[in-house]
Amino acid sequence: MRIFVAGGRGQVGVPLADLLRSQGHEVVVGSRADGVDVLTGAGLGAALAGVEVVVDVLNTTETEAGAATAFFRGTTERLLAAEQSAGVRHHVLLSIVGADRALANGYYAGKVAGEDAVRGGDVPFSIVRATQFVEFVPTLADWLTVDGAVLAARTLLQPVPLADVVDLLARTATGRPSGTTTDLAGPQAVPLDELLRRALADDPREVRTVQGQSLGAESTDALVPLGEHLTGSRRG
C-alpha cells in the first residue's frame, strides 16, 4: 500500500513512517524538506500520485485560535482537494481527546476546525483522537510556568505513550475508513498538578495548585475520554 504521511518529519510522523515501512508499505513523506508544502500546495499533487491513504499528523506552534484554525483548516482542505484529484481512498486525521471541550485553548480550537473540515469533505475518513502524549508532559509544564513556578489546576489528564498512538494510526491507515472518531488514552487519569509534580521531581520549579481548569478545559474531566475508548498497552 502506498501511504502519504503529511508531517512525516515530525514527532509523530517519523516513527509512523518507520513502522509502516517495516510492515511492507511504501511511504511518501510529506514535508518541506521533501519538496512538499501542504500550506501552499507546492509539490502536493505529484506526491499523491498512486497514493491510497493519507495520514495527516501535521502540527503547528501556533496557539492563538485564529492562527491555529487557519493552519489546521487550511492544510486539511488543501489535502482533501488534492486527494480527490488523485483518487485517494482514505484520509486519517490525528486529533486530541476532548479538544471540542476545551475551545478556550486556541490550539485545540484549531484541531477541531481540522476535524470539521474532514467530516465535511468528500474523502472517506477516520479520525484518531489521542490524549496528551506522555512525552509531552514536560512541555505542558513549560507552558504553565509563570515567574518560575508551574501553575496547574486539578484538570484530569490521561497521558498515553507516543508509541501507542503510532500503533493505532498505522492500524487505522491500513484498515477501512470508519467515518467515525476513535479515542485513545493511557491507563490512568491523573490530576494535572499531581502529574506535573511527579514529572518535575528533579526540577527546581514548584508546582502550585490553582483553582479552575488548565489548558482551556471546560471542566475537570474535559480532556479525558467520557465514553467508549481504547486504552494504550504501554505505560509511560
Rank of each mutant, 00 (worst) to 15 (best):
D142G: 08
T61V: 02
L80E: 00
K111Y: 13
A217S: 04
R198V: 08
T61W: 02
A217Y: 02
G216W: 11
R9N: 08
S233N: 05
D147W: 07
V5P: 11
G121I: 05
R198H: 09
A70G: 09
Q158I: 07
F72W: 11
R89V: 08
D116M: 13
L140Y: 00
V53F: 14
V27Q: 07
A81C: 05
G179H: 08
A189Q: 12
E194Y: 03
D167H: 01
R32L: 14
I3T: 09
V165S: 02
G121K: 09
V12H: 03
V160L: 04
D142E: 13
V27S: 06
P187A: 07
V137K: 04
A130I: 15
D202Y: 06
E62N: 14
V51R: 13
L226Y: 09
A17W: 14
A130F: 11
A153D: 13
E218G: 15
Q213L: 07
R2I: 05
R89W: 05
D167T: 03
G50H: 06
V128L: 15
G186Y: 11
T181Y: 06
V97I: 08
R89H: 07
V14E: 12
W143D: 01
I127D: 11
V57R: 01
D18T: 14
R32H: 12
Q158D: 05
L39E: 06
E228T: 15
P124E: 03
V36C: 02
R171M: 02
L93Q: 14
V29L: 07
T131Q: 06
D37I: 08
S31R: 11
L162Y: 00
R171F: 01
V28W: 12
V134D: 02
F136D: 01
A199N: 00
V146I: 12
F4L: 13
V14M: 05
G227E: 08
Q188A: 13
F72R: 10
A81I: 04
G66I: 00
A189C: 08
S31T: 10
W143V: 03
D37H: 10
H90N: 10
F125S: 07
L94T: 10
A152R: 00
G50D: 02
Y108S: 04
E64R: 10
A86G: 03
V55T: 09
V38Y: 12
R78E: 00
P124R: 05
T76Y: 15
A170I: 00
G179P: 02
L79F: 06
E228C: 13
H229W: 04
L144V: 15
Q11R: 14
A109W: 14
D183E: 15
Q23P: 14
A47P: 01
G8R: 14
P161L: 06
D221Y: 14
P204F: 10
L48Q: 05
T61R: 02
G179I: 01
L58H: 11
D56W: 10
L58I: 09
A152D: 00
P159D: 06
G98Q: 05
A47C: 03
V210R: 12
T180H: 05
V224W: 05
W143R: 03
T174N: 07
K111S: 12
W143T: 03
T139L: 02
